[in-house]
C-alpha cells in the first residue's frame, strides 16, 4: 500500500522536473531565436548612404546647381539684379546644401539679416524650406496682394522676407531660412565663409 502511495507521487515529481526542463529548453530556445532575430532586424536598418552630410565649410566655392552653366562658379556678374539662382557648394551637391542666392540692393537689408555677409548685395540662404523640406523659389517680380520681394515655397505657400533674415511672413514654416556667410575670394568668385547660421530644413519631431 505504501508503495502504491509513493509511486504516483514519484511520477508526479518526475513530471514536474520534466516540465521544468522543458520550460527551460523552450525558454532558452525562444530567447536565442529572438536574439538571432534581432541581428536580422538590424539589417533592415537603412544602408548608410555615402555622400550625405558633407557640410558646407569656409572657402567652398558656390556653383550653379542647374541650367546650362551647371557646375560653373558664380561671380557677382552671374545674376542680374532682383534675380536669384540655386547654387551648391562645389563638389557637395546634396539637397541639404542647396542655396538660394539672391542679388538685391545692399541698402535695403535690415536685421536680423547678417549685414556683413552681403558682398555686392548678394545674400545666400538655405533653399530648403523649414516646413517640410521643399525647395524654395524667389519672386521675380511684384504681384498684387503678396509682399515683394519674397522667397516662397511651392508646397504649402510658405513665404520668407529675404531682406529681413528670411523671416517667415506667411504660411506654415516654423523658422526662418538659415543664412550662409558669403564673401568674394581673390578670383572674384562667391564663396562660403562658414556653415549656415542654423539647422537646415525641418527639425525632427519633438525637437
Amino acid at each position: 500500500m505504501a508503495e502504491e502511495h509513493e509511486r504516483p507521487e514519484h511520477t508526479h515529481q518526475a513530471g514536474m522536473r520534466r516540465r521544468t526542463l522543458l520550460r527551460w529548453v523552450v525558454g532558452v530556445g525562444a530567447f536565442s531565436s529572438l536574439a538571432a532575430l534581432a541581428s536580422v532586424l538590424g539589417t533592415v536598418k537603412p544602408p548608410q548612404t555615402a555622400q550625405r552630410g558633407e557640410k558646407i565649410k569656409a572657402g567652398d566655392v558656390l556653383v550653379f546647381a542647374l541650367g546650362q552653366n551647371k557646375g560653373a562658379p558664380l561671380t557677382p556678374t552671374s545674376i542680374v539684379p532682383q534675380q536669384a539662382v540655386l547654387a551648391f557648394p562645389q563638389g557637395k551637391a546634396v539637397q541639404d546644401n542647396l542655396i538660394i542666392l539672391i542679388n538685391l540692393r545692399r541698402s535695403q537689408f535690415i536685421p536680423p539679416t547678417h549685414l556683413n555677409w552681403l558682398p555686392d548685395g548678394y545674400v545666400a540662404y538655405s533653399a530648403i524650406c523649414t516646413h517640410l523640406g521643399c525647395t524654395v523659389g524667389f519672386s521675380h517680380e511684384p504681384m498684387p496682394g503678396v509682399p515683394y520681394p519674397h522667397i516662397h515655397c511651392p508646397c504649402h505657400q510658405g513665404m520668407y522676407n529675404p531682406l529681413a533674415g528670411a523671416e517667415v511672413v506667411a504660411g506654415p514654416p516654423p523658422r526662418p531660412l538659415p543664412q550662409l556667410p558669403l564673401v568674394l575670394n581673390a578670383k572674384g568668385e562667391l564663396v562660403a565663409d562658414g556653415p549656415f547660421d542654423g539647422p537646415v530644413g525641418p527639425l525632427p519631431g519633438g525637437r
Binding site: 533592415v44 536598418k45 537603412p46 544602408p47 548608410q48 548612404t49 550625405r52 517640410l132 523640406g133 530644413g201 525641418p202 525632427p204 519631431g205 519633438g206
Partner: peptide, 22 residues
Amino acid sequence: YQIAASIPWIGVALAKFVFAGQ
C-alpha cells in the same frame, strides 16, 4: 517622409525605417 519624421520620440527612427534611410 518629413511628416512621419515630425512625430515626437520615434518619428525619425520610424521614417528612416519605412523609407530605408533619410
